[in-house]
């Protein structure tokens, strides 16, 4: 499970460096997210631009991470590829996440706010 986290302007950016977020990896994803989000940050943004495939187990894991961060911290998503966006849309779970088209939207926003 390859996850890379960096803190930019107080926002924790976590990149999922996996092609698939599926049943085979969902539990490890949750465990690793618990580790990387141990550092303080009120906003956590998951960069999913490398993920080409998400199934319902992967979706459930993303929701579980969101619930583990609540209520003090929010999980946002960025860079959903078409197949991944489709799963969020079909399940209507796109209505419960703030979704950014690209991770750069988040970092630019952070820099603007800081400036």
């Amino acid at each position: 499970m390859n996850l890379y986290a960096e803190s930019v302007e107080g926002v924790l950016l976590v990149r999922v460096d996996e092609e698939r977020l599926d049943a085979a990896i969902a539990i490890r994803f949750k465990d690793r997210m618990r580790e990387v989000t141990a550092q303080p940050a009120t906003r956590v943004v998951l960069d999913m631009s490398q993920v080409e495939f998400l199934d319902s187990s992967g979706l459930g894991a993303v929701v579980a991470v969101m619930k583990a961060l609540a209520p003090r911290r929010k999980l946002e998503l960025a860079g959903l590829t078409p197949n991944v966006a489709k799963v969020f849309h079909l399940t209507r779970m796109d209505s419960v996440f703030r979704i950014h088209a690209d991770i750069s939207d988040v970092t630019e926003e952070g820099i603007r706010n800081a400036g």
């Binding site: 319902s56 187990s57 979706l59 459930g60 894991a61 929701v63 579980a64 969101m66 619930k67 799963v87 079909l90 399940t91 209507r92 779970m93 209505s95 419960v96």
Partner: peptide
């Protein structure tokens, strides 16, 4: 599964049927 209940599962058969 209702999105506002933040379900972690139960999506599978709905996706299949859809």
């Amino acid at each position: 599964p209702q999105p506002d209940h933040l379900p972690e599962g139960g999506f599978g058969w709905f996706l299949i049927r859809d």
